[in-house]
Design a protein around this nucleic acid. Structure first.
Lengths: 216, 216
DNA sequence: CAATCGTGTGAATTATACTTCACAGAAATT
DNA sequence: AATTTCTGTGAAGTATAATTCACACGATTG
């Protein structure tokens, strides 16, 4: 059950949008001003916000930025009466997921909402996957030792790592290096040398924090 | 090859100790004053420091504290000519691993050194084990979801967790709860309610840091 | 140019982690 | 008092991860 927030100063439009969206299975709430919208966003989590670009008092872009600050996960669809390429591009750059230009058909609205939600689901899936990969990479002591080595020495090649760890079979190391590479924790340059990526560095920070804590 | 630092103002004793220890397979270095010892500790890692309690200029306890600050992992064995229970207890409290009272026999010295090193090995092993357990615990998405729930709700019982996660077979949850309990990340009170331990809280902090970073 | 070393692949095996199922005693409910 | 729900155990099976082995190919060295 996805939750939507409709923000528009036109009460008639709010009512119509709410009816259409409710009919399609969404839960809706609405706000007549940007201020009211922000207030509601502070108290309740929304999946999608339909935000009128042209409203009295606060302009659409500022409202967009403020809403994104409060709820980074919420997807925002801008609604604008005078569609111009520039304003649309600007809104997307500032974090809007899509935009609709008045007047729009019911189908247009629904397909846009569905697409945005679908994209959100996909994004979440991707992030969760990365996270899973990172953590399962850290689960193996061998891989952690490889990371420690790379952290200390900056970059090393296969046989250097293999010998340093005292492992006989180099293909074992190849196996673990591949996993670390696929998780984006390490990378390899043209000279076949392995090193930590930016994310790998951050991961090591985290690891060290945890290690220090557990070592009391 | 374990590295020892001998700190004593008596040159004769330093020479004797170094010979005995070298004969037993250790690498040694020495210092005649506390200041010199601290200087050497800054540039080189030692496994064990033999530290005379009674020295001119700096007293033994201060030297002990300073050395521990520079190299927390180094094990320190205090040497004292006038053994008293109080000074020994004090030294142990301040971080010394053991103490020897002059005069001591060669065997006494060697067994003390060996025991201290053995204890150190054991400690390290324990810590590494905890760390392994913690990270392999975090590798499973189910377990991370359990942790998130416990983080949000403080404490929950088996069936609450099971239903909240939408899992049909409760024994599956039992399995994962057991792993989390064994890693010391969660604990259970007499009412059978599960909650995060102190380490579990810290672990969640780490996890959130990493998650935020990976979510860019 | 032959031999050695470094860097890997892919298949087969082994080990470990995870899930499922059958069951059982304690606690709560009817 | 009987029934249902909760909390678990232990064995069996399944899935996934890790290791080992046989081999290949380019680079370097003698």
């Amino acid at each position: 059950m996805k939750k939507m927030l409709i923000v528009d100063d036109d009460a008639e439009l709010r009512k119509n949008l709410a009816e259409i969206l409710k009919a399609d299975g969404y839960v809706t709430d609405d706000a007549s001003t940007a201020g009211e919208a922000i207030e509601k966003a502070r108290n309740d989590a929304f999946d999608v916000v339909l935000l009128d670009f042209m409203m009295p008092k606060m302009n659409g872009i500022n409202a967009l930025l403020e809403l994104k600050k409060i709820q980074p996960k919420a997807k925002i669809i801008m609604i604008t009466a005078f569609a111009t390429v520039e304003s649309a591009v600007d809104a997307i750059k500032k974090g809007a997921s899509d935009y609709l230009s008045k007047p729009f058909k019911i189908d247009e609205l629904l397909t846009t909402v569905r697409r945005v939600l679908e994209e959100a689901r996909f994004e979440d899936g991707m992030k969760k996957l990365d996270f899973d990969n990172t953590l399962s990479s850290l689960a193996s002591p061998i891989r952690r030792n490889i990371l420690k080595l790379l952290f200390a020495r900056d970059h090393m090649r296969l046989m250097e790592i293999t010998r340093e760890l005292g492992i006989e079979d180099h293909t074992k190391v190849v196996f673990h290096l591949k996993i670390l590479k696929e998780s984006g924790i390490i990378e390899q340059d043209m000279e076949k040398s392995y090193s930590l990526t930016r994310e790998g560095m951050k991961t090591m920070d985290c690891l060290k924090t945890l290690e220090n804590f557990l070592a009391k």
